[in-house]
């Protein structure tokens, strides 16, 4: 009875390894057929791309995740969780004593620090996308001025369903005219 090459070792042959098994495969029609089927499957699988979303989508996804993380509430710094309870209570007692005995008169409220602003998008006034949008759909671009929202990416990302529909209609009309569709 002929013993054939098991699947995991046939995969080694498929990947260009498994020298000893290669000799068996070369001489065995059944193993050759199994290997050929897997090779054909690999060729098919490798060519199947995922449709690429709009470039604006990645910024949109990042923002959606960020918003949902913010909704989770402020994270407590892990530092505080790592401090054992005893020293923490002692430190709290010392702090309380300092606060109680310190004069409170004449204290001025500290100004709030602005939240750090971070964005991968260019400032609205430098956003070339607005010019492109203005050329394609002037009516939409007129509403995309700085102050109403940021650059074109921010405008498009933040659109409501209805606004998205309006933009889509404008673009469809404008592109249709431009291409004689």
């Amino acid at each position: 009875m002929v013993s054939h090459v098991p699947e995991q070792r046939l995969l080694d042959v498929l990947e260009g390894r498994g020298g000893a098994d290669r000799a068996h495969v070369d001489a065995c029609a059944q193993c050759q057929a199994r290997l050929a089927e897997a090779q054909a499957g690999l060729a098919l699988a490798v060519g199947a791309d995922v449709p690429e979303p709009s470039p604006l989508y990645w910024e949109s996804l990042r923002r959606q995740v960020s918003r949902r993380v913010d909704e989770e509430g402020e994270r407590r710094p892990a530092f505080w969780r790592r401090i054992s309870l005893g020293p923490a209570l002692a430190a709290a007692a010392v702090l309380a004593a300092i606060v109680i005995f310190l004069p409170v008169a004449g204290r001025q409220p500290r100004p709030e620090r602005p939240l750090p602003a971070w964005s991968a998008l260019p400032p609205a006034e430098e956003d070339e996308g607005l010019d492109v949008l203005r050329a394609v759909a002037p009516a939409v671009a007129d509403a995309s001025v700085p102050g109403v929202c940021g650059g074109v990416a921010e405008c498009v990302v933040d659109l409501s369903d209805e606004e998205s529909q309006v933009l889509a209609d404008h673009l469809r009309r404008e592109i249709g005219q431009g291409m004689d569709l």
């Binding site: 699947e7 070792r9 046939l10 080694d12 498929l14 199994r34 897997a38 499957g41 699988a45």
Partner: peptide
């Protein structure tokens, strides 16, 4: 490795 080999064969089939 075995699962990958089976997956490729099944995909083809």
């Amino acid at each position: 490795k075995a699962n990958l080999f089976h997956a490729l064969g099944n995909l083809r089939k």
